[in-house]
Write a protein that binds this DNA or RNA. Structure first.
Lengths: 248, 248
DNA sequence: TTTGAATAATTGTAATACAAAAAATGGTTT
DNA sequence: AAACCATTTTTTGTATTACAATTATTCAAA
């Protein structure tokens, strides 16, 4: 019996497809296109974008599709509409940069290096505290899962495979955010994953060193030692050599 | 000449109305209603919600409006749709709790006390680091604006007015997030504001003490002393007495 | 100058029709 | 019986048209 393990796993996880199925639907494609015009500064903050019919013609889509695209962008804080006035680009201060789809849309617009180091600037704030909270609040099941994941890390390190390691690394950090059992930390799992997948981040250090850093975090959380978990995470993120974008 | 200062100011700021104009449009009302069913657990994760025509009848709206509502919820990570299958509630791990509109929708669902203390759990991670970054990266204009805002705080403290103080307090913290000049910190200004407006948070300590805490943050940032700014912020947020929900 | 009614431009909502995707069905072949 | 393939069926996706609601603009009147 041949197995399509990925598909089966997706079904088990109640996911339709791994990620947000990229851009199958028309309105998402249109939204992405407009979003990038806004994010790049092509459409200026505070300016009124062309009216719906004009945009329909520009993109060659129906008003239905276009309006759904605009609703999507409104939801991200990029646009706001009113009858008779039109649809306006809102001030940058209201853009939801913490939305994974927004992050995908940034791909190739701003300097990836800058963008990633900015992200690291947030990660350094959030993740150590997440580790500290996880050490305290992780459930029994979550601790079991964490040890299973760390086991995998050890195995992969033995004969190193970049892709497999990225996968398990992400699931490691994602589980930590989940293990805070704090709703406000949950989204960072997706944000981190999206950052990795769109700006292909490689940890320049393979194997031993990196595994050791993870081991320190892992053991501190398992021991319920929040201070140690936090310190280990700070150390992990401060060794500023790694996690630079692959390009250039 | 009579002045409608608020409206004039809104026009100056390029805002259509102060906040996201709540629920003027039909599709937002529908979205809110469905969102609350999901957030409350009434609609279970992984389950398929009724098909579009059924929902149209339930809400008494057209398919156009209903679909725009669903697109909004999809954008927040709550739903995902596919032809022939239907629209499914996605796993909680993918919900964007860092979206201001999502936070509004939580009002009255979960225990406000728990929710607010969870938020404080994130704030304690993010805000001290934001202060540290602001101390380093704030522009000249931002430093000027910060001192103006602090001036206002002093004035308001002299004859205390709760509402006015909340207003200026929020603008103080918002400006700090902006002054990091880091895209990923920007959204926290809106998140903080939304948390305050929907879960009416009162700082139990008025006047002098609180002003002093802000002064320490303010002076450290102005001096460019990131370590001191961070420490002052930690202190400000650790005095765990304040910022509890008003209800009960 | 101010007021107020008419106008016009744009988004908001509705209704209908058809296209596309994909599971489910059932019959055919191996 | 098992595998395969075309057919059917269900649901969302897109297009089109029409009309309602909102509100800036215009222009006339007081």
């Amino acid at each position: 019996m041949r197995i399509e393990s990925k598909k089966v796993k997706d079904i088990m996880n109640n996911n339709f497809s791994n990620i947000s199925m990229s851009s199958r639907s028309l309105h998402v494609q249109v939204a992405r296109s407009i979003a990038r015009r806004i994010l790049s500064g092509d459409l200026e903050q505070g300016s009124i974008v062309p009216n719906e019919m004009t945009l329909c013609e520009q993109f060659g889509v129906s008003r239905t599709a276009l309006r759904e695209a605009i609703k999507l962008l409104t939801s991200k804080g990029l646009l706001t509409s009113r009858p008779k006035i039109g649809t306006k680009v809102v001030n940058r201060a209201y853009w939801n940069f913490l939305d994974p789809q927004m992050i995908e849309w940034m791909d190739g617009l701003s300097d990836a290096k800058v963008f990633c180091s900015q992200f690291l600037g947030l990660r350094r704030a959030v993740e150590p505290e997440a580790c500290a909270l996880a050490a305290i609040h992780a459930t029994a099941e979550q601790r079991i899962e964490l040890s299973e994941i760390f086991q995998k890390m050890v195995q992969i390190t033995e004969n190193f495979d970049q892709e497999a390691w990225t996968e398990v690394d992400l699931s490691f950090h994602r589980l930590i955010f989940n293990s805070t059992n704090n709703d406000f930390y949950l989204p960072f799992g997706n944000i981190l994953t999206t950052m990795f997948k769109t700006f292909i981040l490689h940890s320049s250090m393979h194997g031993a060193v990196c595994l050791n850093e993870h081991r320190l975090i892992y053991e501190a959380i398992m021991a319920g030692n929040s201070a140690a978990a936090k310190a280990a995470s700070v150390d992990h993120l401060q060794s500023g050599k790694h996690r630079l974008p692959e390009t250039e």
